[in-house]
């Protein structure tokens, strides 16, 4: 090593740098981490922290300027306001309903893909499920707006039901793929063993398939739940007058011009997601993402 560093040929700088890096793993690591951590660790987390601090400030009623004085007012409004409680519960209900619908639709599909289709067909089925993920989110929500409109193909009209249906449609692939991966890892021999020991299909499902694929199901539910909880665009497109948490945040930034209150409302989905993640951490679902 040292003999290389002493050769002062043309390009010696580069060589010296290379061998210096080769010998100092710590320097290499710091250089590699510098930019990503400055961006995401410092700037992004800093932005989140600043937003959280803003939630404890208030906005001037007339000018909309942020008044930098500590207050709990936003959070008391949030907790005591009947409207916000209703909207929070409604958003939770929508997220739960979407997750449940997606689970019920996705599980049989994933099972047929993983256990009934030939390997060749499996490959194509995965592509078929993945493909709509590449199509624009907005386009898919729009497609449902067209189908649900009064003289459209379905003609159900807009509202809460339309929102749940559209969100379920949008996030369905996010539920199918983890469950499919989980079922694929489940050895067929286990299913055969259960059958040989006399278990009927339902019992096999309940005692073998479900417990072993549960982490995958939870992994899928993290996507469907979180994506539904923060959504306000789909609600605007097919929800009619329905309001979810996201709409309250959006309206307080735009029309009401009350950033501190919007920041306080935005903490609600974050706290809910953190509780959800903490609750499912022990199932091992996070390794299935």
């Amino acid at each position: 090593m040292t003999t290389i560093t002493t050769t002062a040929a043309p390009g010696g700088m580069r060589r010296r740098a290379a061998s210096f890096l080769h010998r100092h793993a710590g320097v290499r690591l710091s250089l590699l981490l510098s930019a990503p951590l400055a961006w995401l660790g410092l700037a992004y987390l800093g932005a989140l922290a600043a937003l959280f601090v803003t939630a404890f400030w208030s906005a001037d009623v007339f000018t909309g300027d942020v008044v930098k004085v500590f207050t709990w007012a936003n959070f008391t409004d949030l907790v005591t306001g009947e409207v916000y409680r209703t909207i929070t519960l409604r958003s939770l209900g929508v997220a739960a309903a979407v997750t449940l619908i997606d689970l019920v639709v996705a599980f049989p599909m994933a099972f047929a893909m993983a256990k009934l289709a030939s390997p060749r067909a499996q490959r194509w089925l995965v592509i078929a499920v993945l493909t709509p993920l590449w199509a624009s989110y907005l386009v898919k929500a729009y497609a449902w707006r067209v189908m649900l409109s009064a003289d459209g193909l379905l003609g159900w009209g807009y509202g809460l039901t339309a929102t749940v249906v559209t969100l379920s449609y949008l996030w369905l692939p996010y539920m199918i793929l983890p469950i499919y991966a989980g079922l694929e890892r489940l050895p067929n021999s286990l299913l055969d063993a259960a059958a040989d020991l006399g278990a009927r299909p339902w019992r096999t499902f309940r005692t073998v398939v479900w417990p072993l694929t549960f982490p995958a199901v939870v992994a899928g539910s993290i996507f469907t739940f979180s994506l539904s909880l923060g959504d306000y665009i789909t609600v605007k497109i097919v929800g009619g007058k329905t309001q979810l948490i996201g709409n309250v945040v959006y309206d307080n930034i735009g029309a009401a011009n009350n950033l501190p209150f919007a920041a306080a409302v935005a903490t609600v989905p974050v706290v809910i997601m953190l509780i959800y993640l903490a609750a499912v951490r022990r199932t091992g679902a996070l390794e299935n993402l």
């Binding site: 932005a47 979180s226 950033l259 920041a263 974050v270």
Partner: peptide
């Protein structure tokens, strides 16, 4: 993972505020 795990609206207003 955080920027994609948190609702987009949170990332959005945090950045615009900054």
């Amino acid at each position: 993972v955080l920027p994609i795990a948190l609702p987009g609206i949170v990332t959005g207003i945090a950045l615009s505020n900054t």
